[in-house]
Design a protein around this nucleic acid. Structure first.
Lengths: 100, 100
DNA sequence: TATATATTTAGACAACTATCTAAATACAAA
DNA sequence: TTTGTATTTAGATAGTTGTCTAAATATATA
């Protein structure tokens, strides 16, 4: 789970995820959308894979990357515990302070 | 939005959020739950505030921190675009490769 | 006022991150 | 086999981050 937050903590990587929403792409096609070197994009793809936000399949010379939605589903679950609908159950113990 | 991902990219800060799910707490009470110095926790609280994941109110010598759920709601919206229910609409263009 | 408590600010430092270029690897095609 | 294309690995570097201690600030109390 740590890896997921780490992977998402970078605008370029989040942009890569948005790109792949549309369609699967090769590493090269992805790199062409950014003004970074290919090794840099390759590194970002690696971090996204470590977080299991992407999967990859090698086909000939090309490596195709695809979104993996299952991790996002987990993240969603984590996040739901903090939403307005879930939280009002908690004790609100901020003391009534009779300020000076 | 960048600040939100940054704030969440640290286990201690995520733990602080979970703590505050139960009840509002002072900076000192929060710090007592961790094996870090108070300045360190103060810094984490600051980052969480910058991301608007927390609000704080000073009462006398004490500073009370509370969860702010509205940002989580936004994050949720961002995340929803990547969930299984939303995504199957996309083109799946991974070519059928007749492997060697 | 003097002292104690709660919290933050400042400054330092080791560890981590994003980026680059150059080189290596893997595969395809001539 | 030689050449070209796609991608990753290695190594370097500047910038960022998490942590600490010491000091500063703000408030409460004796």
């Amino acid at each position: 789970m740590n890896n997921v937050f780490k992977a998402l903590n970078d605008k370029t990587r989040r942009d890569i995820l948005e790109l792949l929403k549309q369609e699967d792409m090769t590493a090269g096609q992805i790199a062409d959308h950014f003004n970074f070197s290919k090794p840099t994009i390759s590194h970002h793809l690696d971090l996204l894979k470590q977080a299991e936000l992407l999967t990859s399949v090698k086909k000939g010379q090309f490596v195709f990357y695809s979104l993996n939605t299952t991790v996002m589903d987990e993240l969603l679950k984590w996040m739901l515990q903090f939403t307005a609908d879930t939280l009002p159950l908690r004790k609100k113990i901020t003391p009534r302070y009779e300020g000076k």
